[in-house]
Structure formats: C-alpha cells, structure tokens
Nucleic acid binder design. Structure first.
Lengths: 215, 215
DNA sequence: TTGACATACGAACGTTTGTTCGATACAAAC
DNA sequence: GTTTGTATCGAACAAACGTTCGTATGTCAA
C-alpha cells in the first residue's frame, strides 16, 4: 500500500513546508491546524513534530527557507539595476513595482508572499524582526541608494525613506488585498491589469495626481 | 463581593465589545479566545454566548457596531469638504490623510481600525463584503467625485480609482504597520511624526518623487 | 409580597488542539 | 545476516477550545 520509501530524503519535509506556507498565507497561523497541513501534504500527523519539532518552528521555517529566498529573488532586479551606470528614477520605481507585481514568480507565489508579510507587519513577533531586519530594511536602503544616484537634485534621506515606504505599501496592498482591489475596480488580476498597475504605480510615484498618463 | 447589579442594561455587552475589538485587532480572530475576552471585560465566560449567541457573531458585531461607526466618522471631514464650493485636490488628499492618521480619534482607535481592516482585506469572508460594500466603495466613490469637481483637467475614472486605492493603501499601511515603519524610519508615532506623515502623503500623492518639499 | 423577566453565575459538556511515545518499516553499512 | 540510523505510523495524551444548561440573583411591575 505504501508507495513512498521510508528514507525519503527531505521530500516529506519539503511537501509540508509547501502546504504550510500556502495555508498559513491563506488563513493565518492560528486558523491552520497541524492536521490540516500534514493531511494536505500527504504526510503523517506526527511528521511536523518530527521534522520541525513543533508548529511554531514550522512557521518560522516557512519564513526562513521559503519567504526569505523569494524576497532575495524579488530584490535581484534592483541589484542588477545598481550594476548599471545609467538609470533613471523611473527605472527604479518601475523595476520595483514589476518585481512585486509582475516578476517571474507565479501570481500565487506573489500573493502568498505579500499575505505572509502583511500578517507579520502588525505585530512585533520574532518572525517580524527577521522579516524586517533581513529583508525590509536592506530593501529600503537599496532603493534610497539608487535614487540618490540618479535623482537630478538631492533629497533628504528621510523623505526618500517615506517615499520608499509609500511605494512599498502600494505593491504590498495591490498583492494582498486583491479581493478589495478587484471589487473596487471591477477588474480581474489578468496580465493586462497587472501591467496597468505597474504603470500606475510608476506614474503615481513619479508625478502623483498631476502625472501625465503614459498609457 | 459583586459590585455590579445584575440588570446591567447593556454595560456588560458594551465592555465585551470593547475588549473583543481590541483583542481581535491585536491578535486576529483565531488567536483570541472567548475566555480571554470575557476575562478582560470582567464578565462571565458564558456572557459572550448570552449576548452574542456565539464567538463568530461577536466578531461580526464588532464590525457592525464599532468599526462601521468609526468609518463613518472618518468619512465625515470629506463629506464636509463636499459641501463647500471651493476646494483643491490637495485639500481632498490632505483631508483624507488627516482623517486616517490624525483625526479626532485616539491613536489606538486608528490603529485598531486599520488592523481590523487589513486582516479582512485578504480573504472574502462575510465581514469583508460588509466592509468593502458599505464602507470602502462609498469612500472611493466620494474621493473620485471630489477630484472630478476640482481637478483642472478631467481624468479617467479608472485612473482616479487607482490613485484613490494607492492613497488608501498608504494610510492603511502607515497605521497598521507601525512597528515596521518605526523600525525603518527610526521614528516614534508622536504628533510631530504623524504630521510629517500627513504632509508626506499629501505631497507624494500630488507630485510624487518630483514634488516640492513643503516642510 | 408576589410574579415575570433579564442577567450573571458555576459547572460541565463534547470536540479539537498540539504534542508525545513506542512500535514498525525501510535503506545503507558492516 | 546483523546492526544502525532515519523516517513513518498508530494511538494516545493532557490541555484548551466554544458552547450549553440549570440555577441563582438581581430589577421592575402588578
């Protein structure tokens, strides 16, 4: 009856991580049960405690080995931009918006990413500290650094930080609040709409309400 | 030993609603227990089921009788603006930002409001539908209407909706993600910083990165 | 004083929760 | 073939969960 060999390598562990991330993003930590995770992963109930000692550590591991890795991937386009010697402020914003909304991850992965992040933004748990210190702060610093290199006239770091946060709040929101956005705009998150969103965020971040429409 | 009379009017009910809202905002629905709520409210465990039939209905009632009422209050300044016959796009944005970040509610109430909202933005529960249909959509419509009356040249409704969502995402984020914002900026949410945030959002929404600094 | 009514209380219910533990099955090493 | 180590399994645990129910205590009208 049993198809899988017992010496599975890390196959079961990985499957549990996958399903755990999916369910944690969808429902939040407390709404998900260990039985739900292991059942979805086709694993035994006790597998969570065997591979991750306990539920809380599994949650932490989701961030350490899944979320962080994806955060690095999403930072990559900006790092590549940093290598170039000519780029504009628009390049920076567009690259950022594209990385979060239309990068090479799947749509589901992006939503997961933002949902998990937004769930941790409110409290001050250990996961939040990891997420903020290891991902958010370096990301903000990078964006500010890029702007300082390409803006025609210098701006205060404090102002640039706030602007970076404003843009960040938008890409986060347009990802994790999809039901709300779809309801207000009446649009589905198809390729066309996502491209429009990238354009909008770029435009808005550059010129605000007074910006020219590029589309 | 008992100080409160048994015929309490709705005092116990109200106390439970208060503590329930506070705890739901802080921890989320599933992380809060009925015992925790009633204990914080100084009420009996069974009081929740007596006054609200069950936990889920208590959660719904928090939104119906607390959250909605506050949402109306926060819309008020914009409705007053609508009565005037002269106002600028800056007035609209500043009034909106001020209502969410520095209105006459307490700082804690504003954070609660945004935390509860952000928790419901991700899923499609019944509470979300209530929140979106009864509060968010009318709010967006109002903002778009105001802009259409005062902008020098007409803009497409779709563009204005996206801009309204962008501003909304910022005021929401700067409220519910206070730990993250404080960590990145190194600032506490004192009066001065909140005023700076209102200025920033207004400025950013009007001119984006290219905006003049008014401060 | 009595009755009806609303609220609060104590105590328990059945279920679900995360976790534990010993037994079992398999692969690789000796 | 035996041993060793890793992974899975079945079964159970104690604790915590939301909920229920009968009773007690108060208020107010008759």
């Amino acid at each position: 009856m049993k198809l899988e060999p017992h010496n599975n390598g890390d196959a079961t562990r990985e499957r549990i991580l996958d399903e755990a991330e999916r369910l944690f993003a969808q429902k939040g930590y407390d709404a998900v049960t260990v039985r739900e995770i292991t059942s979805a992963a086709g694993a035994h109930l006790a597998a969570v405690n065997y591979h991750f000692s306990n539920k809380e550590n599994l949650y932490l591991e989701v961030f350490r080995s899944r979320w962080m890795q994806r955060a690095l991937k999403m930072r990559q386009p900006l790092l590549e931009l940093e290598q170039r010697d000519d780029f504009t402020a628009e390049d920076v914003v567009r690259t950022l918006a594209r990385a979060f909304l239309a990068g090479d991850l799947t749509a589901e992965q992006r939503q997961r990413h933002s949902l998990l992040a937004s769930r941790e933004m409110g409290n001050q748990s250990g996961v939040f500290k990891l997420l903020a210190q290891e991902s958010m702060v370096p990301f903000m610093d990078l964006v500010v650094r890029l702007w300082q290199r390409c803006l025609p006239r210098p701006m205060a770091v404090e102002s640039l930080e706030l602007i970076a946060l404003s843009i960040f709040s938008q890409v986060l929101y347009f990802n994790f609040a999809r039901p709300a956005v779809s309801l207000v705009t009446g649009r589905e998150y198809d390729t066309e709409f996502v491209e429009q969103l990238v354009d909008h965020i770029t435009n808005f971040a550059l010129h605000g309400l007074n910006g020219d429409e590029t589309q």
